[in-house]
Amino acid sequence: MISKLNLENILFLDIETVPEVQHFSDLDTTKQELWELKSQYQRKDEFTAEAFYERAGIWAEFGKIICISVGYFTFQGDIRTFRTTSFYGDEVKILKDFKNLLISHFSQAKHLLCAHNGKEFDFPYIARRMIINKIELPYKLNLFGKKPWEVPHLDTLELWKFGDYKNYTSLKLLTNVLGIPSPKDDIDGSEVYRVYYEENEIDRIINYCEKDTIAVAQIFLRLRGDSILSKDEIIHI
């Protein structure tokens, strides 16, 4: 049961992604053709491949990571704090810095990673981008040969499903129904492309990513039956 897990052994995280280049026309001919094939079922006849390209960031083969935010609990007696920090900038540096964090602080068998829809998106996306960028996978992301119960990943979406595989609940909806402050008070995922490529406001994206990470931790606390974090308990590093 999650109520028995030691919160200090869990690294909560969220990622933000965008298309690998700003415009469809910036892709070479082969990549344009591959994008047309990859996206044809999602866009159907409503959009051309070029018009649909702003959404390419959700596929690791056509996108890149621009921010990984992480958070973790610390306890000193009765004092609980949740510390957050972010990796951003060049994607290779982001991935290497994140990998170094896992190796130096979250490499033991007891350590777990937690994200919302992480098993379907965040964890595989990070792993794929590492391989694409020729970065050896850290143990916590290398799932080859692992049995399901050996995978060190927690997913608040999966926990909320309670075995209902048809159900999808967004982070925004889940925070709302659980009485948790919404992380979507500035931008949402659909606006990250514009804020990154057109407005060049990475600080807004970092802030948004960290709020999502905090929201994941808050949901996890509610699922355990614990009190949620107050503003005074959250420290931005």
Rank of each mutant, 00 (worst) to 15 (best):
Y88P: 00
D90S: 09
E91W: 03
E91Q: 11
V92D: 14
K93R: 11
I94F: 01
I94D: 05
L95C: 03
L95S: 01
L95M: 02
K96T: 10
N100H: 13
N100M: 08
L101E: 07
I103R: 09
I103K: 11
S104P: 14
H105I: 15
F106K: 14
Q108M: 14
A109N: 14
K110T: 11
K110Q: 09
K110S: 10
H111W: 13
H111Y: 14
H111Q: 11
L112T: 05
L113W: 09
L113V: 07
L113P: 04
L113C: 06
C114W: 07
A115D: 08
A115C: 11
H116W: 02
N117Y: 13
G118C: 03
G118F: 02
E120Y: 12
E120N: 10
F121I: 07
D122K: 01
P124M: 06
I126K: 00
I126L: 00
I126Y: 00
A127E: 02
A127K: 00
A127Y: 02
R129T: 11
R129K: 11
M130T: 08
I131P: 00
I132S: 06
K134D: 09
K134E: 12
I135N: 04
E136H: 07
L137R: 05
P138C: 08
P138V: 14
P138D: 10
Y139F: 12
K140M: 12
L141R: 06
L141Q: 08
N142P: 10
L143C: 08
L143S: 14
L143M: 12
L143N: 10
F144C: 09
F144I: 10
F144Y: 04
K146N: 15
W149M: 06
E150T: 05
P152C: 10
L154M: 09
D155M: 11
T156Q: 13
L157S: 10
E158M: 07
K161Q: 10
K161L: 08
F162S: 13
F162Q: 15
G163T: 09
G163W: 07
G163M: 10
D164Y: 06
Y165C: 12
Y165G: 14
K166H: 14
K166Y: 15
K166G: 15
N167W: 15
Y168A: 07
T169A: 12
S170G: 15
L171F: 04
L171Y: 04
L174Y: 12
N176R: 05
N176H: 12
V177C: 14
V177Y: 10
G179P: 05
S182C: 02
S182F: 01
D185S: 03
D186N: 03
I187P: 01
D188V: 09
D188Q: 09
G189H: 06
E191Q: 07
E191H: 01
E191P: 00
R194M: 12
R194E: 15
R194K: 12
R194T: 13
R194I: 09
V195G: 05
V195P: 03
V195A: 04
Y196L: 03
Y197P: 11
E199Y: 08
E199W: 10
N200I: 02
I202K: 01
I202A: 04
I202D: 03
I202C: 04
I202L: 08
I202S: 02
D203T: 05
R204K: 11
I205M: 00
I205Y: 00
I206E: 02
I206F: 01
I206Q: 02
I206K: 01
Y208N: 01
Y208H: 02
Y208K: 00
E210W: 03
E210N: 04
E210L: 05
D212F: 05
I214A: 03
A215F: 01
